[in-house]
Design a binder for these strands. Structure first.
Lengths: 209, 209, 209, 209
DNA sequence: TATGAATGAGTATTCATTCAT
DNA sequence: GATGAATGAATACTCATTCAT
């Protein structure tokens, strides 16, 4: 929905987005009803549908905004850094810092990644993020500082570590964002360098079903 | 619900679990109604509630079964292996192999991890899995083959990589389970060894909000 | 929706159809809410949707039933009558008799004829009815007892007279069905015979935009 | 609502009426929302309620205008014609000509005739039209050119034929208005003259329920 | 005159669960 | 063990109308 909004209208819209984000994060998207949102704000039901076509549209709006904001934050953190490995580090650090400041969005993104209705949007954002990292990785490989390997796959690996440790360390164990980032970066860069030694004879030849 | 079941009763119950698993995986837990399940099986509604107290209970049953099965599969893969790093490798490989054979459960577990009602159960299973790996990691550290670090945290890191790459490589890009496992293992073992070099002057001292 | 129904179920269904027909006729289709129907019957809302997929489906069911019933009644009235003009007469008479006994349906059919969602169904029934009459008309023409003319068009003309006079004389002025039928038949048969005299010089050459 | 309007105001009002007429005709009265009307015209909601008290009032306005216009058109067509049968013919012809030029109104009138809220108005207009014809019919009877019969009832019969054949021939089969009028007039005048022969023994004595 | 914002009762429909048979 | 029937609270969304600016 695109509508010309007055200042007051713009404020209402932001208010709706803010309140809904909080409720969605705490309760989940499905369990949070439109009624709950408008009642919580003390406005009539029509207000919601004046600003959004549907509950779904509002959620997509929220997601898009979050993705954009995060990406901008990452770009700013990386800007002008010539060293590809440093860019990877700064990117990870920026992500975790941003998530620490927007805990609601973490929950929302996790949910959206799974729900059929929104997963496509999330996959898209993920792809963009992964391609960003992949560029740095490729450069690192070219410089001989990272082992050969598919940069996009490695990007996904980094994303996986970042998400899991952010959830567990940052949000569950309440570690400092800086220290979480240190841990993630250490593991990620180690992972990028890979492992080449022999573990146990025959191990790598184990076949799967 | 605990009920003494005849052989026929046990079969009905398994049939319900099987069909529900497939529907939940394809459509999601919330969107799949009890009506859909009993209709799909051509039985009356009472049947469902004869075997399960609620839709939720059925889902928990499914999750518990999956977690148990996966764990047993991992244990069997690791049994009698003395080398801790090899145990880690075999564990990862077993997980991916199992998931390749039970794609429905992957979706279900992802969903359950987020939904308030089931996340506790998932966290518990995750904790068990992570503690398993953590034991091997600790041994590896003691043997000087893995860098110092919190084994539980490292376990979570491995879980993160495994999940993400399984989703992307195994289920989206349809790679062979064996090659997915190779990639994960390589990255994970590299990550465990960590990274100690200097990236760019001052990089690690960047502080986050 | 097709569902195996018990005797009790069949009764409920009929009860719903009967009550809804009355409400629709009195209040209109749109203004009559599902809530009103189930409350009027003192049952829960689910009952409605156990028997019908939607309010629309119920209405279509009602219409179809009415059309069928009316058609059977007409056929019975005409059966074995060799004279085509008599068959036309009996058909008209049967229609009016039936409508007198089912006043609710008259209203419903009128509404349905206009509403986009149902008009197609009504047009179909109308077409069938018109074709029935057209057959008799054609025979009448062949026997030289009816003037040349498109039998289908003449059938529509008869339908128009019947509907209008039924509404006005039968339902508004509360005339006896028999006398309404007499009037309709007289006009219809006269109309079939047509008019061939000159009215006023040039009259038939008046052109329209 | 009566409001003194500036020239510009009058134009706005006409614009609203015109646009609404088209929307109502295409989509129906209920399904066409005030929002749709004002959006379609690119004006705010207040505009609508500045010119009309309600959606209903606007519709009534439309209907009244149409009825008036049609009646004037008929009167003009009949003016100074001394022959009553010719006046009937000219009246029918004028109606069909007018409807051919205002197809939207035909739909609107059909709808309004059924809806509880508007049917009274339509019945009134119908009565006027019927009384007009009835006057000519009575004269025709007095001149011995039309069979005895209630002129008002015969007027309704003519209206019925006209409406049905207009819908089917003019709007559905897209015949020329002139030829539709010819058909209607032929049938109507034939109907007025009635039918006096015996059809089948006993036919007219069939009694209805 | 006109606008955008707000109201809130009302709509059809869903669905986990219960129950009489 | 099993069935079909019933419950009723809950949901997203609509829309004629009002109002402050």
């Amino acid at each position: 929905m695109t509508r010309r909004l007055t200042t007051r209208g713009q404020q209402r819209r932001d208010q709706l987005i803010g309140f809904a984000t909080a409720r969605f994060a705490e309760n989940g998207f499905h369990p949070t009803s439109v009624t709950e949102i408008v009642n919580g704000l003390g406005v009539g039901k029509g207000v919601f549908y004046w600003y959004f076509d549907s509950k779904e549209e509002l959620f997509i709006e929220i997601l898009r905004g979050a993705q954009q904001d995060l990406r901008r934050f990452q770009e700013k953190a990386i800007a002008n850094e010539p060293d590809p490995l440093a860019r990877i580090e700064f990117g990870i650090r920026a992500s975790i810092t941003w998530l620490a400041g927007h805990p609601d969005f973490f929950t929302l993104l996790q949910f959206a990644a799974i729900d059929e209705k929104f997963s496509k949007l999330i996959r898209l954002g993920e792809e963009i993020a992964v391609n960003d990292v992949a560029r740095h990785i490729r450069e690192g490989i070219d410089q001989g500082r990272i082992d050969e390997g598919d940069p996009v796959v490695l990007g996904h690996a980094i994303l996986g570590v970042t998400n899991q440790l952010t959830r567990v360390l940052l949000f569950e164990k309440k570690y400092e964002p800086g220290s979480v980032a240190d841990t993630v970066i250490r593991f990620a860069l180690g992972g990028l360098r890979g492992f080449s030694g022999v573990i146990a004879a025959g191990a790598l030849s184990v076949t799967s079903t």
